[in-house]
């Protein structure tokens, strides 16, 4: 019962912060709400026994991507005017379209006969993930390193000032 309450609190944190991300008028508030949304998603991973992914989520999303996004905000706005506002356009039409898409997804999710097979609870997933990465998914793993190198060089080259 207690776990249930905590679960719904984490869900409320995730979804509520996500609402704030897309509705807030202040860009910094959006970024901070995104932080809490990422934290909530990490909590959901923990509820799904994905400890390593939860840790990765915190380290990469919260520690890396969000810091990059805040850097981006600071480099592209005049930070001195305290209120960094950003407007939205065509909220009405967008809201209708997105609601329709969500209702379609909802019907699809609740109406489909999913293959349900809960795996037994495991003690830590790190060794299993490591074996999979090194045996079955070795090629994607290596390609990922090339992707990261390309992204590193591309970002450095693109953001250089002048030629």
């Amino acid at each position: 019962m207690g776990a249930d309450i905590i679960f719904w609190m984490v869900v409320a944190l995730t979804v509520g912060s996500a609402f704030l991300v897309v509705l807030s008028q202040n860009l910094i508030y959006s970024a901070i709400a995104l932080l809490f949304s990422f934290m909530g998603v990490a909590g959901l991973y923990i509820f799904m026994m994905a400890d390593f992914i939860a840790a990765t989520q915190i380290v990469i999303y919260v520690g890396g991507i969000l810091v990059l996004i805040i850097f981006g905000i600071m480099l592209t706005q005049r930070i001195r005017d305290v209120r960094i506002s950003h407007t939205s356009m065509q909220r009405g039409i967008g809201g209708v379209v997105v609601t329709l898409i969500f209702l379609g997804l909802f019907r699809m999710i609740t109406g489909s006969p999913w293959h349900f097979e809960a795996i037994p609870e495991v003690e830590g997933t790190v060794s299993g993930i490591g074996k999979l990465l090194m045996v079955e998914y070795l090629l994607p793993f290596e390609v990922t390193s090339v992707l990261l190198l390309a992204a590193l060089m591309g970002a450095a080259m693109l953001s250089r000032r002048g030629d």
């Binding site: 995730t14 979804v15 996500a18 609402f19 991300v21 897309v22 860009l27 959006s30 970024a31 995104l34 949304s37 998603v41 999303y61 991507i65 996004i69 981006g72 905000i73 592209t76 950003h86 407007t87 939205s88 356009m89 065509q90 909220r91 967008g94 809201g95 379209v97 997105v98 609601t99 898409i101 969500f102 997804l105 909802f106 999710i109």
Partner: peptide, 27 residues
């Protein structure tokens, strides 16, 4: 997941600031 996807899509199609669009992609 569907709620987060819809919210991200809403952010992408309504936001004007490119960084806010990026936040939608992350969602």
């Amino acid at each position: 997941g569907a709620i987060l996807f819809s919210l991200g899509l809403f952010g992408i199609i309504t936001r004007r600031n490119a960084i806010a669009v990026l936040m939608g992609v992350e969602l």
